[in-house]
């Protein structure tokens, strides 16, 4: 378990998450892609904290802030999806062409 291996695993998670976030049509699936990317980022933060950062507490705090970002993203994201669904019965990104104009 070296830092390099940890970073490669994190990179794989971020890459997969990016693929999901860019390719999925449904809002909910798109959000899963974002979450997977944040998962990789958390692994990065903890790996650096444990193996390169001499265990400074800011490293842990960064991970917690990423978790908070995740929670906020999810709560606001779903609230927006509910609001959009209520007004236009849409659950995919394509259905929101109106937002372009």
């Amino acid at each position: 378990m070296t830092l390099t291996m940890l970073l490669i695993v994190g990179a794989a998670l971020i890459g997969t998450g990016l693929y999901g976030a860019l390719s999925q049509q449904s809002f909910v699936m798109l959000m899963m892609g974002l979450e997977l990317m944040l998962n990789g980022i958390m692994l990065y933060a903890v790996a650096f904290w444990a193996l390169a950062g001499h265990g400074i507490p800011e490293g842990q705090l960064l991970t917690i802030i990423v978790m908070a970002v995740m929670a906020i993203e999810m709560a606001m994201g779903f609230a927006l999806v509910v609001a959009v669904f209520r007004t236009s019965q849409a659950d995919t990104t394509e259905a929101l062409q109106d937002l372009k104009h």
Partner: peptide, 17 residues
């Protein structure tokens, strides 16, 4: 999307290595 995902994975892995 797959291409971009793979590119990001490769880039980050190169940085890691």
């Amino acid at each position: 999307a797959a291409l971009l995902g793979f590119a990001v994975f490769t880039g980050l892995s190169l940085v890691a290595v």
